[in-house]
Design a protein around this nucleic acid. Structure first.
Lengths: 345, 345
DNA sequence: GAAGGGGATGTAAGCGGTGTCAATGCCGGA
DNA sequence: TCCGGCATTGACACCGCTTACATCCCCTTC
């Protein structure tokens, strides 16, 4: 593995010159530069990032940490694109324009993961924290050591840069659509994991919105884990009630699909007998029958902005931290009882 | 940002002792260890990974590079879980048991990406290359500098460690099912991107298998890009033929779903009029109507084994490189014309 | 009581780059 | 001819951590 010293010796120059050539400095005579470049090419020299990182105090790496949800690891494989994967791709796309790389780590929340993250923090220039991968206190401790931007964290103010989507707004829009446009009064709601900030916000906002409608009630089934299977389970719970809701809103699309399929399996027509809605607007929701009415979130945009913000902070931007909330959007398809749209979205 | 020197000074010991405590060496007196640990805790010391990496010659980071497919970046968001995402999660899960982290980079194949990877190679101890992210020559050049394991690369032998799935076997099984079990003779095939090794293998194997059946023909529609939209396009092409195939196999599930939906939109019943099959066994295929008959691949296992292999190589295992092929499995549901199964998979 | 031994700790030399400052060489102008 | 100034290049300290080796101290052992 060749080093600057090897290159310097072979090119008959000093290491300083090799370094200058590598970094594209303009105070090297063209002929010298070419000679050095030739040697670099010849021996296949690639600078060691550790040495570089030590010397400049910059590693050109940012980290992204998120929760790995679900006991059954094959869920990931089966249940489709995770929120965090979209964020990862978005961040990576932003980084593509720089020479920073993305280091990532997922894990179940808890102390082992927290200490893994602490170790990881020594490898990066800044950190993106997705959802509540870290407790607020740990988050703040981290933020004292390096720039941290959090994505879709719980509402509570941490005094850090945060990017979120407007979950309550989306849920209010959905509740409004179901109660006003369709006139449903007996609503159901299938909740998500209580450690998912998004899930918590969603139940809360939906319930609150429904309760503001005179005569409307909502039957909340908690304990879902965002998987299709847990949607099916919730549907069975609902089927056991004396009165089945007219419409069931779910904390995410996967569960909504599970609910829909379980209802259909029991001979209940969706949306004729019971309407079902989701949240997230993921791909499978478009191809199920009936197509799922849901709430779309700008997940990719979330990742893009978070990455940009983190990069700024690393560059030394010291403005006070900002919380930014991106809008969500009601996506009306047919599972809520609306007529088929003409076009094929 | 505290360093070992700070900790050493505050604890009244030498940096060597601090280092020993950090690395859990047992030749430190318990009382000394505690004193050092207290200081570490107090000042929130986290060792700088660059310095560590430079000193031990190990960065505790491995890289994963893969292709970012599709011009339209929102495809990712819309079309569901990518192959590479599953691999990423699998690799990450393996790494969770170690103190190595995962660095990743996606990009469109080409020189800019190749040089990005070269730079990246200075930041890692080893590299996983997914599909043909790198040309064989570049791959070999990289492999001279550090351990490289390639995942799902094109068949040609590169003399490196490779993990693949048995695409041909899966496709032969599918062709057999369609021609023998169902007796179809006029087949269609919707191909994937020509730069995707998997896609190439799949067409080839399917065509070959069909051609071995007397009287059977296959109408190949090339140029798909693995997206649902391109499946729809392909379906329209097929609808334009004078004779529509009795069964259409597709190079992946997303396209199969597109084909199915476009056929249905034109009033053609699936599978009654035309059978449709996919490849990959992703989540959406289970929830469409009719459920998609497809071929399942052990993608997660692929990632797990590749990661394990790379870690071994980094540890210094110098056995000759091995190519390993994991079996695929025919997943029969209803889109091929088979009767509904009782249980709910 | 001196020598020997072993555990605990300190010293200091790298690891491979970067960047500062000094040195060198060459130029034109006085 | 001599000198200042600019363009290049070199020498070397330093970044923070690890580790081989040296040192020191306290016991045992004969």
């Amino acid at each position: 593995m060749p080093t600057v010293y090897d290159v310097a010796r072979l090119a008959g120059v000093s290491t300083a010159t090799v370094s200058r050539v590598m970094r594209g400095s303009d105070l090297v005579r063209p002929v010298t530069r070419d000679r050095v470049l030739a040697v670099i090419e010849e021996v296949g020299f690639v600078p060691d990032a550790s040495a570089q990182g030590l010397s400049r105090r910059r590693k050109e790496i940012i980290g992204l940490v998120g929760l790995e949800r679900g006991v059954n690891e094959t869920d990931i494989e089966r249940d489709g694109l995770l929120f965090v994967d979209v964020v990862v791709h978005a961040v990576e796309a932003v980084l593509r324009g720089t020479d920073t790389s993305l280091l990532l780590s997922f894990g179940p929340s808890g102390e082992p993961f927290a200490s893994r993250i602490r170790a990881l923090s020594g490898k990066v220039d800044g950190l993106l924290v997705v959802e509540d991968a870290l407790a607020p206190a740990q988050l703040r401790a981290l933020a004292r050591r390096l720039p941290v931007v959090s994505i879709a964290a719980s509402p509570g103010d941490t005094g850090l840069d945060v990017l979120r989507v407007d979950n309550p707004g989306g849920m209010r829009a959905m509740a409004g659509h179901l109660t006003s446009d369709h006139g449903y009064r007996r609503l159901g709601f299938v909740g998500g994991p209580s450690d998912a900030p998004d899930a918590v916000e969603r139940v809360a906002a939906f319930s609150a919105a429904v309760h503001r409608v005179p005569g409307a009630t909502v039957d909340v089934v908690p304990g879902g884990d965002f998987s299709e299977a847990s949607g099916r389970t919730a549907a069975r719970v609902l089927l056991g009630r004396e009165a089945i809701p007219e419409a069931v809103a779910c904390a995410n699309d996967q569960m909504a699909i599970g609910v829909m399929r379980e209802l259909q399996r029991s001979g209940i027509a969706v949306p004729a007998d019971v309407a079902v809605t989701g949240f997230d607007n993921v791909f499978p929701g478009r191809v199920v029958e009936p197509p799922l009415t849901t709430v779309g979130q700008p997940v990719r945009e979330l990742g893009v902005r978070a990455a940009a913000r983190l990069l700024e902070r690393i560059e030394g931007n010291t403005e006070p931290p900002r919380a930014e909330t991106l809008p969500t959007e009601l996506v009306v398809r047919r599972s809520c009882g609306c007529p088929p749209a003409d076009e094929n979205p």
